[in-house]
Amino acid sequence: MTTRIDTRFAELAKEGRSAFVTFLMAGDPDPATSLDIIKALPKAGADVIEIGMPFTDPMADGPSIQAAGLRALKGGMTLRKTLELVRGFRKDDNATPLVLMGYYNPIYIYGVDRFLVDAKAAGVDGLIIVDLPPEEDDELCIPALKAGLNFIRLATPTTDDKRLPAVLANTSGFVYYVSITGITGAAAADSAAVGDAVARIKRHTKLPVCVGFGIRTPEAARAIAETANGAVVGTALVDALRDSLDAQGKATGKTVAAVADMVASLAQGVRGAKQAAE
């Protein structure tokens, strides 16, 4: 089964460039603004879109993304509304891959089978669930693959060669390499070390490898794009969104443009990469 993710990475390989992957929180700061932002992403240069599913207790996220999730929840966001957001985006865009990222509990409570049906129907292509390692594949990973969704796994600096095959076994779409040990937005990724890690993962899989956590600037995005198939930026975009809000945390006339401008400049960084990884 070919998903929009597979198609997009195949196109980019032909063009000889890496993907720019954006992360923003669904419903941040409110559902309507969030939809406007996500609709603006492809034109601004996003090749793949990750949307966070808000959760009260995001254990792997730093303060920026935690705060974004709480803003969204305060604005009334739910998992059902996140799927509505995806449907809204798909009305005008049937090509850009869209991945939902978050934690398992809201999906478990929604009901795994019902969620997979609804997500597929809404136009979701893949899932990244932070607290579902391969040891818990029966929960969601295997049912998601059967439902025709990609299950994108995180590999980390602590995932050694012995463990990598287990992590990659049921992974599809792409591999998300977490460039640091730590939470989102905490430290800067070291592009040389990341290059070695990506090469190591590529010895075990033919899937594209995207790198995230700790990429904030066009320069950093370019450096990562020269060694990986994609660079993921989240915290820097969420921060740009936050800085555009008014004192009450509400969207302003500048909010959509603030995020789109940041996406455009980071996308230029990725497109300026000398060569993409094979």
Partner: peptide, 20 residues
Amino acid sequence: EHGHFGKFGGRFVAETLMPL
């Protein structure tokens, strides 16, 4: 061996922590 008491328990952690 998977840390389950009936359906409860388990190992729902980020990959970074799994090897630990």
